[in-house]
Write a protein that binds this DNA or RNA. Sequence first.
DNA 1: TCTTGATCCTATAGTGGCTAGAGATTCTAG
DNA 2: CTAGAATCTCTAGCCACTATAGGATCAAGA
Lengths: 140, 140
Amino acid sequence: MNLPIGELARRTGVKVPTIRFYEQIGLIAAPPRTEGNQRRYGKAEVDRLNFIRHARELGFEVDHIRELLAMSQEPQASCHQADSIAKAHLREVDRRIERLQALRVELSRMIDECGHGRICDCRIIEVLADHGQCSGEHVS
Amino acid sequence: MNLPIGELARRTGVKVPTIRFYEQIGLIAAPPRTEGNQRRYGKAEVDRLNFIRHARELGFEVDHIRELLAMSQEPQASCHQADSIAKAHLREVDRRIERLQALRVELSRMIDECGHGRICDCRIIEVLADHGQCSGEHVS
DNA sequence: TCTTGATCCTATAGTGGCTAGAGATTCTAG
DNA sequence: CTAGAATCTCTAGCCACTATAGGATCAAGA
């Protein structure tokens, strides 16, 4: 072990500046340094960073990850809190999916209706402007 | 007309500080002022801000909105560019929906498998940590 | 031992799209 | 004339990074 930061980055898929950033915001602890002031990491940091990366990929916010990490260090505690964080996040994801799907519908209708002619006949601009004239004037 | 900024905000649903911010980044022009230095807007700004708000709601980035606004001012030009901006955005939306749905699946499987017991048996923590032991040690 | 080049260090600023707050001024209705 | 709502500018903060500058250090080969 005793990995330099670049090797930790390679093993976890978290970029070097991001690792330093995580240290700065206290998501990971400051590791020991070499005589020349370079960070050296052990196996524990690989695990912790993988945990963080995975949680970020799932869209958890840093503050929630902080809580999940704290929980993971108390194996005997109830997992009720982890469950409720995950459920709240799932609801949030559902909301986002719904919004994006509604948006998708509107976008593709807009695009379908575009006659590929002049701007003044264009449904895309028209839908956005939300007023249907085409007689020389313009939006602004 | 000759609306103060608050009234413009009310009519467009864009908040007052946001309007000033849009002016600052050049998305809308600096309007005339009263003797007391307060902004006064006309109908054109109401339309333009509505256009912007609508495009933002559809998730277009400010830079794309800038282009769309420029186009809307050249009614005789081809709408090919507007079309391609919209299509690129649609693809982006599709990508996001896909990612969120994959994420949703993983999240809800995680939650379903949570036995609501102790942390050390919890699938949520375990999935994140991505290593399945439960014998006193912990993640970090 | 020396050199080279990859990696590492700190510190600061930038990203996008706003939002919040302080402290001063101006407008408007009574 | 006055009170209070609305406005003004300016600065800083949000999130989660990312980029850049200008150095220092490390490891391998000659």
